[in-house]
Design a protein around this nucleic acid. Structure first.
Lengths: 176, 176
DNA sequence: TTGCACGTGCGACAATATGCCACATTGTCG
DNA sequence: CGACAATGTGGCATATTGTCGCACGTGCAA
């Protein structure tokens, strides 16, 4: 039975992931902070881990780095509420196996663990279709929101839009 | 004088990059296809390279992979017309040093070369001022519009907005 | 404790923006 | 010439946004 460590500061997502992995026959360990996660790694030495990038206190990137230092053979999938290219490249460089945007299906995560660095990558030209305007807008909003530590007022200011408008956009496209 | 290989299938961008790097004192080699690029690598063995991801024929990812196989110490920055997280992680996994979305300033590219994998990543809230939403929207519109050869109907379709709306946006922000 | 500064969520309303229609114009191609 | 695609335009219903206001919670200092 494979041991897997799940780290997310949001209890709801953590529970949901936990149940899903248990149902699929994994031995799960959960943590909702950097310290808890490191404790689990020390004690149980899992080979699989799912980290949420945005956490209070030390960032998921820091956890990623330290966890790999402790257990170099650990396969880590990074989750993030909003994908940004900058953090994605950062996470991969630090040694994450894959990087997924929430809400990520558990099966997607499991597939991502199979994304070994030495597999044959897919060279198909998906670049040919530009993303929709709505998509780039959404991604940029998420990027700035992270920069502002999820402070809506601050993000709205930096984005040059009204706070109320940002609220509505977030509500509208929020994961339900 | 550092040798740098610039690869882009669009002549305009290639020339612009070329001039910019020459002005900064680099010894540049340019190529606009997979084959030309590999020839340069064989002959001159540069240690720096900038690849456009979207190219006719073999993809920039394939070039990235083969170039690194030939010259493992090559530092490669990947450029892309439309940034996507999937291709970004792919490129980084294949060994690119960094991944930037066009239009990328040459200084940004040079900074990206400094993003060595073993450097100490900054976990602080980096970044200067994020661009406004309107700015991001405008830049993306321009990118897609260029891609569509200034065909408004085509660009509107790709952007997921109405043609009339695109017209109005263009009129509004380019009143000349 | 009180007061204050922020940040948030949300309601209401007016000002804009957008989607979508129809129609006229232009340029290209065969 | 006709067929076609792209554009520019006006009108209008709907959607989105800006701008108020107000209540609530939190942290902090007097």
């Amino acid at each position: 039975m494979e041991k897997i460590l799940l780290v997310d500061d949001e209890q709801f997502f953590l529970d949901r992931m936990n149940r899903a992995f248990i149902r699929r026959g994994y031995a799960t360990y959960i943590a909702s902070s950097y310290d808890e996660a490191m404790d689990v790694i020390e004690e149980h030495q899992p080979l699989l881990a799912v980290f949420d990038l945005k956490m209070p206190g030390k960032s998921g990137l820091q956890l990623l780095k330290d966890a790999l230092k402790r257990v170099p053979e650990l396969s880590i999938v990074v989750l993030t509420g909003y994908g940004s290219i900058a953090t994605a490249t950062e996470a991969i460089k630090l040694g994450a196996v894959s990087y997924l945007a929430k809400p990520a299906d558990v099966d997607e995560i499991i597939i991502a663990f199979g994304d070994d660095t030495d597999r044959e990558p897919d060279f198909s030209q998906e670049e040919l279709l530009p993303p929709s305007l709505a998509r780039v807008e959404w991604e940029h909003i998420q990027r700035v929101l992270t920069d502002c530590d999820d402070n809506i007022s601050c993000a709205a200011k930096k984005l040059g839009i009204h706070r109320r408008t940002l609220q509505r956009k977030l509500y509208k496209y929020a994961p339900k």
